[in-house]
């Protein structure tokens, strides 16, 4: 291997008493979160592909006797969730202008939209006309939407945590608002997953 050109400064060990304490290194949390979301995405991808496999193998899809899925309510739900992704982005814009009140307002609005989505989901569960154990289609339907719903709950939990912290004066500033970015990115993630899910479960 070629020895690279070396800056002689790098070679001489310094003996300043640094010992690393308090030595700041750049914030890698966002990078780590994105790496983690790749793993999260792979669970969903695995489940989606499994759904596709069940569907390809089945002689009839959905299996005979399965009640038709209603499209109106999930459609409205989708609109709510997709628009909440735009709503939450306003919080990021607000905190960059040091507008904590504005950030709190947009987070609260997103939380409300998320809760409406969850209740819509529950309403739909009660009116589908099929149960978890009926056939492979109904099972995948409940497991996929339920697993996504769990992630919606986690996202709402993250936003509540951010809201709670934001009441501490100066906790979030235009330069330091990693928590807000986490909640926002996670919410976008949940949103994208839902779009794919809606596409393959309801439309295709």
């Amino acid at each position: 291997m070629q020895t690279p050109a070396i800056d002689s400064q790098l070679l001489i060990p310094t003996h300043e008493p640094i010992h690393g304490h308090g030595e700041a290194h750049p914030d890698h949390r966002m990078f780590g979160l994105i790496i983690f979301l790749i793993a999260e995405g792979m669970i969903f991808l695995g489940l989606f592909v499994a759904y596709g496999a069940f569907r390809v193998v089945a002689p009839e899809w959905p299996p005979a006797g399965t009640p038709e899925l209603e499209l109106l309510l999930p459609g409205i739900n989708t609109l709510i969730l997709v628009s909440s992704s735009f709503v939450i982005h306003n919080a990021d814009t607000a905190i960059k202008k040091n507008n904590v009140k504005g950030m709190q307002f947009w987070f609260l609005l997103t939380i409300v939209m998320g809760i409406i989505f969850l209740f819509g989901q529950l309403y739909e569960y009660n009116h589908t006309g099929f149960g978890l154990k009926d056939n492979v289609f109904t099972s995948t339907f409940y497991v996929l939407t339920g697993f996504h719903g769990l992630h919606v709950c986690l996202g709402i939990g993250a936003m509540l945590a951010v809201l709670w912290r934001s009441f501490k004066p100066g906790h979030y500033s235009p330069d330091h608002h990693f928590g807000i970015e986490v909640a926002e990115l996670y919410w976008h993630f949940v949103d994208v997953i839902w779009i794919v899910l809606f596409l393959i479960l309801y439309l295709l």
Binding site: A39, M42, G46, L47, L132, S139, T140, V143
Partner: peptide
């Protein structure tokens, strides 16, 4: 690893949830 987790979740439903993935 996440794909295994997905498979295990489905297996878990088959085992105790009465589904038949």
């Amino acid at each position: 690893t996440p794909v295994l987790a997905g498979a295990l979740i489905l297996l878990c439903f088959d085992l105790i949830g009465g589904t038949s993935f």
